[in-house]
Simulated scan of single mutants.
Amino acid sequence: MPLLDVSQVTVAFGGNRALDGVGLQAERGRVTGLIGPNGAGKSTLFDVVSGLRRPATGKVVLDGRDVTRLGPARRSRHGLARTFQRLELFGRLSVRDNLLVAAELGPDRGRAAETADGILERLGLTGIADASADTLPTGVARLVEVGRALAVRPGLLLLDEPAAGQDGEETERFAGLLRSLAADGTAVVLVEHDMGLVMSVCDEVYVLDLGKVIAVGPPEVIRTDETVLAAYLGDA
């Protein structure tokens, strides 16, 4: 059974369908990619999965529970965490305190400091633990946001363009992090425009265009799919 099972989700803004009967599954121990042109509906789908937007039709099942009508806080308690396309750090707090805020709300809140310090070490952020978040370069700030999501120990991690602003070396290290998270049993869903990253780390890729899933498959199939090339990869 997949950890996340989204089925027949539709979201409309006025007369326009941002999502039209979309389905997506994510399994423990795998990285699932979600790609498509700007405006395809990727972030809207993340909003539906995380509880920020209720769909007109469809269902979201998380770890066997129908969470379609649950809000973000209750979904978080069921093991979901996400990052955002637009950075959402607490700018005036230190890197460590950003992680502590989340850790103190997680399942191991009694060991929040230990959790935060462990994540700092894992992400290579110990040396800037006391730096104010609003002083960080974008690529590093996005890594801190990933760390904050990890602080609640999620089973399902939704990442919305986490590699934006990273240089080549940072992206390579980030790819290793994604693989290690999957190896730990986390289900990772990745929205990303860096196709090198997507094709190197994802086990399966969903392609959205105009609110519909137009292809699903492993990277080696997606990169040669004629429909995908016409809609997205060819232009990229």
Results as ranks from 00 to 15, higher is better:
Leu120Ser: 06
Phe13Ala: 00
Val228Met: 11
Val48Gln: 12
Arg86Ile: 15
Gly165Arg: 06
Gly79Met: 04
Val60Asp: 14
Ala175Val: 01
Gly33Thr: 04
Gly118Val: 10
Met199Asp: 06
Ala40Asn: 04
Thr57Val: 07
Asn16Thr: 15
Ala149Ser: 03
Ile222Gln: 09
Ala149His: 03
Leu34Cys: 04
Asp97Phe: 12
Ala163Ser: 13
Leu99Trp: 01
Leu150Trp: 07
Glu114Asn: 09
Asp203Pro: 08
Val95Tyr: 11
Gly51Tyr: 12
Glu145Met: 00
Leu177Ser: 07
Pro72Phe: 08
Leu89Val: 11
Asp47Lys: 13
Arg142Phe: 01
Val67Ile: 09
Leu87Ala: 02
Phe90Glu: 01
Arg111Trp: 08
Gly36Leu: 09
Asp20Ile: 10
Arg53Tyr: 13
Thr171Glu: 01
Val188Phe: 01
Thr68Leu: 10
Gly118Thr: 03
Asp117Phe: 15
Leu123Val: 12
Arg53His: 15
Pro72Arg: 13
Ala151Pro: 03
Arg109Ile: 06
Leu136Cys: 10
Pro55His: 13
Leu157Val: 03
Leu197Ile: 05
Val228Ala: 11
Asp108Pro: 02
Glu170Cys: 11
Ile35Gly: 06
Arg28Phe: 14
Ala129Asn: 08
Gly185Ile: 11
Pro107Val: 10
Leu210Gly: 12
Gly165Leu: 02
Ala230Trp: 06
Gly64Met: 14
Arg173Trp: 13
Leu80Cys: 07
Ile128Phe: 09
Arg111Glu: 03
Val48Gly: 12
Gly58Glu: 03
Val101Lys: 00
Ala26Asn: 08
Gly176Ser: 14
Ile119Arg: 02
Leu52Asp: 10
Asp167Ile: 15
Thr227Lys: 12
Gly58Tyr: 11
Val101Gln: 00
Gly29Pro: 09
Gly139Trp: 09
Ala236Ile: 14
Gly14Met: 04
Pro137Asp: 09
Gly168Thr: 07
Leu120Cys: 04
Pro137Leu: 07
Asn16Glu: 02
Leu70Arg: 10
Gly23Pro: 02
Asn16Ser: 14
Ser76Asn: 15
Thr10Ser: 05
Ala12Pro: 02
Glu204Trp: 08
Gln25Cys: 07
Ile119Ala: 05
Arg223Val: 13
Ala103Glu: 01
Asp117Lys: 07
Leu143Met: 14
Ala40Glu: 06
Thr68Ile: 05
Leu34Thr: 10
Ala141Thr: 05
Thr83Ser: 09
Glu172Leu: 14
Pro2Cys: 00
Val152Lys: 10
Glu192Pro: 05
Pro219Trp: 08
Ile119Cys: 07
Asp160Arg: 03
Ser76Phe: 01
Ala141Gln: 10
Glu121His: 15
Ala141Gly: 09
Arg223Leu: 12
Ser94Asn: 05
Tyr232Glu: 05
Asp117Ala: 09
Cys202His: 01
Gly196Ile: 09
Pro218His: 10
Val61Gln: 08
Asp130Trp: 05
Arg109Phe: 08
Val31Tyr: 10
Asp63Met: 02
Ala102Pro: 03
Gln85Pro: 13
Tyr232Thr: 12
Leu177Asp: 04
Ala56Phe: 12
Asp5Pro: 04
Ala102Met: 13
Arg153Glu: 15
Gly139His: 05
Gly58Gln: 05
Gly21Asn: 00
Val221Cys: 13
Asp134Ala: 14
Ala175Arg: 03
Glu170Arg: 07
Ala149Asp: 06
Thr57Tyr: 11
Leu45Arg: 13
Tyr206His: 11
Pro37Glu: 11
Arg122Gly: 07
Glu88Asn: 15
Asp108Leu: 15
